[in-house]
């Protein structure tokens, strides 16, 4: 489940990078969500410098870090003329501050690394909101953008299956990650419904006005 989840995550990021690079445009893409995702990786993968889990773990962490910052570069620098800032207006400070406060209050251990890891977990659960908000504001999304969102939504959904499996088999559970992962996946439900009923039938993703 975890491997599928990570692959779904990688596919989402590659779809987004290819969409922007091929169409040389980031229309319909929320730069704010990408900033939040880069922050999530930067604060979660600090342990790259200290602990080694596995080759796979290290490779994936570096890949997520480099691709998320590359996406930001494309949006805010290379193709900034196509960045639709009038529709990307979600106030991300309302996501950042509460996540930070919550991470300081509810965590496994009050150390810098652990609080930052917890912050990244809470922030990731709401990081897609600016993008979903932007899609609702523009009222539609290009089909490639909806495939990106579908893959991204599946990633943490698959992680939930992984957590169930690990709880049953290893009696392992991390409530912070599980609760945040459920919140994160639930946020996509509305989109999943539209994706399955519309995009898979070849229609454009049109949100009811």
């Amino acid at each position: 489940f975890r491997l599928l989840g990570d692959l779904s995550h990688v596919i989402a990021i590659i779809i987004l990078l290819l969409k922007i690079w091929k169409t040389r445009s980031c229309a319909g893409i929320s730069g704010k969500s990408q900033i939040l995702f880069a922050t999530v990786f930067a604060t979660r993968y600090l342990d790259l410098l200290t602990t080694f889990v596995s080759i796979y773990n290290t490779l994936m962490k570096w890949m997520f870090l480099t691709t998320s910052f590359a996406t930001i570069y494309l949006i805010y620098f290379k193709f900034r003329a196509t960045y639709d800032k009038n529709h990307d207006t979600f106030r991300i400070e309302f996501l950042i501050i509460p996540s930070l406060i919550l991470a300081l209050l509810i965590n496994h251990e009050f150390t810098v690394f652990e609080v930052l890891w917890t912050y990244s977990i809470y922030l990731e659960s709401v990081a897609i909101l600016p993008q979903l908000f932007m899609v609702s504001k523009t009222g539609e999304a290009e089909s490639i953008t909806s495939h990106y969102l579908f893959a991204l939504g599946c990633y943490r959904g698959l992680y939930i299956l992984n957590w169930i499996y690990r709880y049953v088999t290893e009696d392992f559970h991390d409530l912070i990650a599980i609760v945040a992962g459920i919140v994160q996946t639930v946020l996509y439900c509305d989109f999943f419904y539209l994706y399955v009923t519309k995009v898979l039938k070849g229609k454009k993703l049109q949100l009811p006005a």
């Binding site: 342990d47 889990v53 773990n57 994936m60």
Partner: peptide
């Protein structure tokens, strides 16, 4: 010693 909560997931 307190088991350092190592996060083995991405």
């Amino acid at each position: 010693p307190v088991e350092e909560p190592e996060h083995d997931e991405l």
